[in-house]
Simulated assay, not measured.
Amino acid sequence: MRWISLIATLLAPTVAVSSDAVPSADDLALMAAADVVIVGETHDNPAHHTLQASIVATLDPAALVIEMLTPDEVVKLEQDKPGYHDTWQDSGWPDYAMYLPVFTASDAPIFGAAVPREVARASYTEGVAAHFDGDVALFGLDKPLPKDQHDLRLDLQFTAHCEAMPREALGGMIEVQRLRDATLAKATLDALDAQGRPVVIITGNGHARADWGVPAFLKLVRPDLDVITIGQGEDGHPPGGRFDLIYDAPSIDRPDPCDTFK
């Protein structure tokens, strides 16, 4: 589809990384030696979640950090993980059957790192610094992005929105993305301090990318950490950004998201 080819062009990885279907023994050893392992996904691809569950089961981490859940939602999830189905299905995330195996792959405590919708909406217009629940200066959120990175992110948002919205009106999306990245990083540091290493983060590919996602915040705040970033592509097309490891899976049938703008 048109939108896939457009996004694939803009999101080409900044370094060449070979893609495999599953981790090798060397890959798993690399993960096991790390303090933090960030496993990206395309949210609606079941194969990506199967791989995540396998990695979590193999590593048996000290903690899991989950993009899709707030801390309050984690409390409810931990009470009855299979029974959380109905609550999850009302959240707007893809089918819970894909995520439950990830949540049950180990007994590690789960740390929620979702930004509530009302906070995300507010940060869209008011900026990330006004709504980050942490030390704004420590996380570098008191400073604007470098112009080249800001402009590239704006291009990506313009393409992702099918060029149907004014490019200059999408700056708020960048603020929301920064807020989510920083919130995931803060939750990860909290999990490390509370539980030790390794911590596994389950999140979208866009947050997992090393060049400006969660890893960039972790490097800024705690540069001594050993962080491994994992991206998951589809049909031989790697996710955009830089990763230490990339795995590939078949794509799924999806409607063209640009149809909503027609």
Rank of each mutant, 00 (worst) to 15 (best):
A194S: 14
T203M: 12
M68E: 13
E234W: 02
Y84P: 01
R117A: 12
D90W: 01
V65I: 10
F158W: 15
G172S: 08
I38Y: 10
L69T: 01
D193E: 15
R197D: 12
D90A: 15
D107S: 15
D26A: 15
G134W: 08
D90L: 11
L184E: 03
K219D: 13
G127Q: 08
D224T: 14
Q52S: 08
D148N: 11
L152V: 00
V176I: 15
T203H: 06
G213S: 06
P146Y: 04
D20I: 00
A25C: 00
L220M: 11
R167M: 04
A21T: 13
F217A: 03
H49T: 04
S106C: 03
S18E: 15
P82D: 07
T58N: 08
K219H: 13
D193P: 08
P46Y: 03
W212Y: 15
A185Q: 00
D90Q: 14
V36R: 10
A160D: 02
T87D: 12
F243H: 02
P46F: 03
V65Q: 10
A62G: 13
A97R: 15
A249V: 03
D27G: 06
I4M: 12
T159F: 09
W3A: 11
M173S: 14
D211T: 02
A53H: 02
K186D: 08
L152M: 07
A187Y: 02
P71T: 04
A114E: 07
D235E: 13
T229K: 07
H131Q: 10
A29E: 14
Y96F: 15
G213F: 02
I202E: 06
R242E: 09
E41Q: 09
I7T: 05
F217P: 02
R2H: 08
G92H: 02
T9S: 14
V102H: 06
Y84F: 15
D107T: 14
G236P: 03
G127S: 09
I230L: 13
G233Q: 01
A63P: 13
D151L: 09
L218S: 01
D133L: 10
R254K: 12
I38P: 07
V221T: 11
G127A: 05
A12N: 12
N45M: 02
A122Y: 04
P61D: 12
I252T: 14
H207W: 05
P101I: 02
P166Q: 10
P146I: 06
G112N: 10
A129Q: 07
V227K: 12
V136P: 09
V115Q: 04
P94A: 02
L10Y: 12
M31G: 10
D44L: 02
D235M: 07
L170K: 06
L192H: 11
A210D: 11
W93Y: 09
Q52F: 12
G40M: 04
P239L: 05
I55K: 03
A182W: 03
D235T: 03
A129C: 04
L77P: 05
A137I: 13
V56A: 09
D181M: 01
G206N: 05
K81R: 14
